[in-house]
Amino acid sequence: MSAYILRRLLYALPILIGVNLLTFVLFFVLNSPDEMARMQLGEKRVTPAVISNWKQEHGYDRPLLFNEKASGLAKVTDTIFFQRSVKLFAFDFGSSDDGRNIGYDISQRMWPSLAIAVPVLLVGFAIDISLALFIVFFRATYLDFGAVVLLVAMMSISGLFYIIGGQFLMSKMFHLVPISGYDIGIKAWKFMILPVIVGVVGGVGSGVRWYRTLFLEEVSKDYVRTARAKGLTERRVLFRHVFGNALIPILTGVVVVLPLLFMGSLITESFFGIPGLGSYTIDAISNQDFAIVHAMVFLGAVLYILGLLLTDISYTLVDPRVRLQ
């Protein structure tokens, strides 16, 4: 397995370089270093000399991808792309365009993201699986049909509706929880209730429908008929046998997102005022802060690759037939 993991990690290198390049090109197609400087320097009394000075200090005075004036290897290395990218592979995120240490900020802001994302994942997973199995139990009945209609309707509603609706009902109308905000440590729990409920309810439509499909596929297989023939109760058949055998596709969906929980939710964090990595990324995009955007996209790519690797490894745990070679 070690060889497999090593090989997969090596495969990741060209992917990361590609992601890096793509991020870089997309960013600089939309934003020039002059625009970035203006964004940082403010609106008033910004002269070209000041802009030039800022670019020089932040290394944005170099050519983007290829330095014609340089010689030898410096044609490639003395560029914004190279200078900004190479350190990322050592997980040195450097400083944001406003001078803050990105690594430090990430280490501080991943906890609020996790504080919301982990309960949403766990509670959502438990509810989605339970409901899906329950619907499968009543498959091909009016209950099943009605549930699917409801789930499709829930899927079709924008996530923003759940957020605003939740804030309106839970906080404005019923005064049960704070409408937004966050606090550090254990004091954060009362701010987590509403985002977690909204996150779980907002995910029920797609989650239950997906798991229902998986379970329906399993439930028609021979081993299920055998289990029933042995006299097992339907509950035992579903929760033990069907659920166990449906784990591979479930894991594909769940394990791959585990590392990405660090990255937070862009909209939820913004609406609830949660100082996580989601709002960090959104702020960076609106501030045209390339250093942060670059670092967050890179981190997201690394975590996604890690998630895929973990998924592969988890297959071996749930299915003895799978071997990683």
């Binding site: 509810i127 339970s130 049960l176 929880v177 704070p178 937004s180 004091k187 009362k190 701010f191 209730i193």
Partner: peptide, 28 residues
């Protein structure tokens, strides 16, 4: 689902049991 709802309701009730301040008070 029922269990989860019950847990959430208990959590909210716990929030209210913390003191005399309004439940939606965002400050300590």
């Amino acid at each position: 689902m029922f269990v989860v709802l019950a847990v959430l309701a208990a959590l909210v009730l716990l929030l209210g049991g913390c003191g005399k301040v309004p439940w939606n008070d965002p400050y300590p």
